[in-house]
Amino acid sequence: MSTVIRMIVTRIALGVGLLFIVSLVIFWATELLPGDLATQLLGQAATPETVAALRAQLGLNDPAPVRYWAWLTGALTGDFGVSLANNRPIAELIGARLGNTVFLALYAAAMSVPIALTLGILSALWRNSPFDRVANAGALSAISFPEFFVAYILVLWLAQTGIFPSMVRITPSTDFGDRVYMTFLPALTLTLVVTAHMMRMTRAAIINLMASPYIEMARLKGLSPLRIVLRHALPNALAPIINVIALNLAYLITGVVVVEVVFVYPGLGQLMVDAVSNRDIAVVQAVALIFAAAYVGLNLIADVLSTITNPRLMHRR
């Protein structure tokens, strides 16, 4: 067990260092973008005088390292500051949206992970059967279509017929049942997009093991194919499967801006896009760190889980 704890501690330390580097890179990258918050906010209405006045008001005239340091010290003390664009506290701006994003990611994961595992195991079991072919072709077609296309097709079939709403209007007061109902189409879209990856990895990992001598032994013992797959092959195939699931979960949190736009879902993706186009550096940093932390955290969990499921890593000699 100490192996695992040591690993968690080192990985968290490395993760924090990584987040620091990410924040530096993001800051540097936003500095490279043309224009700044003042010119973006005033848009076509910008005159040199109003831009100068707004810059002074927003403190944009300080040199970049000074602004970065001010942001970093604030963030370390838990104060993410206010959005430069509209003076709203960033914590408040992000809070509800982070909740929405996590809800949608978990919803999509709750649908896609069981489907992917079941389909993956069954198609490994019935390898090269018509079932295997259909499941693979279906999953691969779903992943091959662009997300917005899948979303529009679902809207055409399921929303224009009045079964599900075409857009998500959720507020903090919306109850759980309504949330599940209203968010079904975006969650289904994401399910269709991510299932193939996980399913194919499950199938490949299991099939890979099926050629091993110990599976041969199990077969010679006369065990049923299902039992062989579930009891003997699957535990050894878990490590790659867990890694792929973690990668897809991270994607569900960070990469769903297209689905958010199509279904008007108030998640973090749209906030990030708006903040980048407004050059609202404080919001960009905060959201980018959340995204980076999601990747770091989920990868850590995946590594811990794959270590635990692998006795050779748990009991190293």
């Binding site: 906010l41 005033l42 848009g43 076509q44 209405a45 959005s83 664009a85 509209n86 003076n87 701006l93 749209q270 906030l271 708006d274 903040a275 407004n278 609202d280 919001v283």
Partner: peptide, 11 residues
């Protein structure tokens, strides 16, 4: 998300 309440910045 960056829309301001400030009447001078409504655009």
């Amino acid at each position: 998300t960056g829309d301001s309440y400030d009447p001078g910045l409504w655009d």
